[in-house]
C-alpha cells in the first residue's frame, strides 16, 4: 500500500491561524512580525488578523460606495439602481426584518451594530471560500470576541432599559406571588440558572459560527485529500464534483451563519429589553 500524505495535518494547517500569509499566484509568503506584547499578552498579528482587516476594509468600501450611490440617486430623484440597490436591499432586510423585527420597539438604535455584525461576519465567511483565503470566523477567538461584543450589548442595553432593579430581576429570579422562605429558595435555585442562561447565549453564538465555518472547510479538504490518498483520476472526478457541491453549500452557509448570528443577537437583545 502506497504511503499517503498526512491529510489530517494538512487540514489542520490550512484551517488554523498562522504567522505566515500565503500570497496569491505563488508570490511567496508574508512572514508577519512576532513578539508584539500588550500587558503581558502576545498580540502579534496573525493570518486571521490580516484577513479580518481585509474583510473590514471590504465591508467599509461596500457600504460607503453603496451609500454614496444611493444618496446620489436619491438627490437626482431617481430610484436606486445596480450595486447600490443590491446593498440597500440587504441592509434594509437586516435592519427591518432582523434587527427591528426581533428587538421590537427601539430596535433602530441597535440596527447599526446588528448591520455591522452581519456584514463583517458575512465577508469573513466569504473570504475563506476564495483561493489563498482564510476564514477568520473559523477561529474560536474571533467568534468568541464577536460573541463577547454581543454579550456586552445585550447586558448593557438590558441594564439601561430595565434600570438597576429590573436588571437585577433578570439575575435573581423570584416567581411572582411567592414570598418568605419559598422566595429565598426559588432565588437560590434560579439565580445560578439565570447566570448560566446569560453565559450560554454568547457561548452558543461562539461555537455555532466557529463550528459551521470550520466543518465546511474540513469536509472540503477531506474530500480533496481523498484524491491524494488514492492517487486515482476516478476518485479525483468524484471528489471534485462533491467539492463543487460543498462549495455552493458553503456559499449558502456563509450567508446563513451571518444571518443567524445577527438574528440571534437581535433576539437576545429583544428578550432583555422586554424582560419583566
Amino acid at each position: 500500500m502506497m504511503q499517503g500524505p498526512d491529510i489530517g495535518k494538512a487540514i489542520f494547517e490550512h484551517t488554523s491561524d498562522s504567522h505566515v500569509v500565503e500570497l496569491p499566484f505563488g508570490l511567496g509568503e508574508w512572514h508577519l512580525p512576532t513578539g508584539w506584547r500588550l500587558v503581558g499578552v502576545d498580540v502579534s498579528p496573525t493570518k486571521h488578523v490580516v484577513f479580518m482587516i481585509v474583510a473590514a476594509l471590504l465591508v467599509f468600501l461596500t457600504i460607503w460606495y453603496a451609500g454614496r450611490q444611493v444618496a446620489r440617486r436619491h438627490r437626482e430623484g431617481k430610484a436606486p439602481h445596480g450595486f447600490g440597490a443590491a446593498v440597500e436591499a440587504m441592509v434594509l432586510f437586516v435592519r427591518n426584518d432582523v434587527a427591528i423585527a426581533n428587538i421590537g420597539h427601539g430596535g433602530e438604535k441597535f440596527a447599526p451594530y446588528i448591520l455591522t455584525l452581519f456584514f463583517f461576519i458575512l465577508y469573513c465567511n466569504l473570504l475563506g471560500l476564495l483561493p489563498w483565503g482564510a476564514t477568520p470566523t473559523g477561529n474560536l477567538a474571533v467568534t468568541g470576541a464577536l460573541a463577547l461584543t454581543a454579550f456586552v450589548t445585550i447586558e448593557v442595553s438590558g441594564f439601561r432599559a430595565l434600570g438597576p432593579r429590573g436588571y437585577l430581576k433578570t439575575i435573581v429570579f423570584v416567581p411572582p406571588g411567592m414570598s418568605g422562605v419559598g422566595a429565598v429558595a426559588m432565588a437560590l435555585i434560579m439565580t445560578p440558572i439565570e447566570i448560566i442562561g446569560k453565559i450560554v447565549k454568547p457561548f452558543a453564538l461562539t461555537l455555532r459560527l466557529f463550528a459551521n465555518m470550520t466543518a465546511g472547510h474540513f469536509v472540503i479538504l477531506a474530500l480533496l485529500g481523498l484524491i491524494f490518498i488514492f492517487g486515482s483520476w476516478l476518485v479525483a472526478a468524484g471528489s471534485v464534483a462533491f467539492v463543487t457541491f460543498m462549495m455552493l453549500l458553503e456559499l449558502l452557509v456563509a450567508f446563513l451563519q451571518a444571518y443567524i448570528f445577527a438574528l440571534l443577537t437581535s433576539v437576545f437583545i429583544g428578550m432583555m429589553q422586554h424582560a419583566h
Binding site: S16, V43, S44, T46, H48, A141
Partner: peptide, 10 residues
C-alpha cells in the same frame, strides 16, 4: 486553539 491576542484584534 484560542489565541488571546486574536480576541484583542477582533
Amino acid at each position: 486553539s484560542i489565541n488571546t491576542g486574536l480576541i484583542f484584534w477582533t
